[in-house]
């Protein structure tokens, strides 16, 4: 009897430490994911027979595998999400993920002259972990990014990105909602389609 009480008592004393160990393990898991992407970036982007567009596409796909786009896309759309048809959702999903990956994959660095450092990582609330990266480029402002990650199943997935303290999901939600209020879901899809037709630098 006395022995059982002692075990329960010790367990109670050690409980915060085991929680801390679990938290640290989660932070490490999230950090390792970002670190692996950061390490892959220079190898994928380094000049080869493949075009820049092709190399960038490969890295975008690699990053995209770890992003929870359904969650991100629905948060950005908010109450409009429920009103959308499955065709609208599918098109919006394609356009939004394509746009997101093109715009934010460069934050992983990997181009000549880029210096990407992994900074501190921290837990946020019960479920999320922020992993901070700092990108330095010649003649450019330093960019500090916090990758917000959430454990879904047994894997961490990116659910948002804070750039210099500003959430990408929230800022897109605000700008999209202004458009949605005026032109509706079809209007927003048209806008995203138009932007997708923009041409990059020509060789």
């Amino acid at each position: 009897m006395y022995r059982t009480q002692l075990i329960v008592f010790l367990g109670f004393l050690l409980w915060p430490f085991s929680l801390q160990a679990e938290t640290n393990a989660e932070i490490m898991q999230a950090r390792e994911l970002i670190q692996s992407l950061v390490e892959k970036a220079p190898a994928i982007l380094s000049p080869s027979k493949k075009s820049l567009e092709n190399r960038e596409y490969i890295l975008q796909k690699e990053l995209g595998r770890h992003i929870d786009f359904p969650l991100m896309a629905s948060v950005v759309m908010g109450s409009y999400w429920k009103t959308m048809t499955s065709d609208q959702k599918s098109e919006y999903f394609d356009l939004f993920s394509d746009f997101f990956l093109k715009a934010y994959t460069p934050l992983l660095g990997g181009y000549p002259g880029d210096t990407l450092d992994l900074r501190f990582s921290r837990k946020s609330g019960r479920r999320d972990v922020f992993v901070r990266t700092q990108l330095k480029r010649q003649s450019r402002k330093t960019v500090v990014s916090d990758w917000r990650m959430r454990k879904i199943g047994d894997k961490f997935r990116i659910i948002d990105l804070n750039i210099s303290g500003v959430s990408v999901v929230i800022s897109h939600r605000e700008s999209f909602h202004k458009h949605l209020e005026k032109k509706g879901v079809d209007g927003l899809l048209k806008l995203l389609r138009i932007r997708a037709e923009r041409l990059p630098a020509q060789s």
């Binding site: 982007l45 480029r137 010649q138 060789s203």
Partner: peptide, 13 residues
């Protein structure tokens, strides 16, 4: 410059 750009040397391009 187009070659530099393709190599990711954006500033020089």
């Amino acid at each position: 410059p187009a070659e530099l750009y393709q190599n990711g040397e954006f500033l020089r391009a």
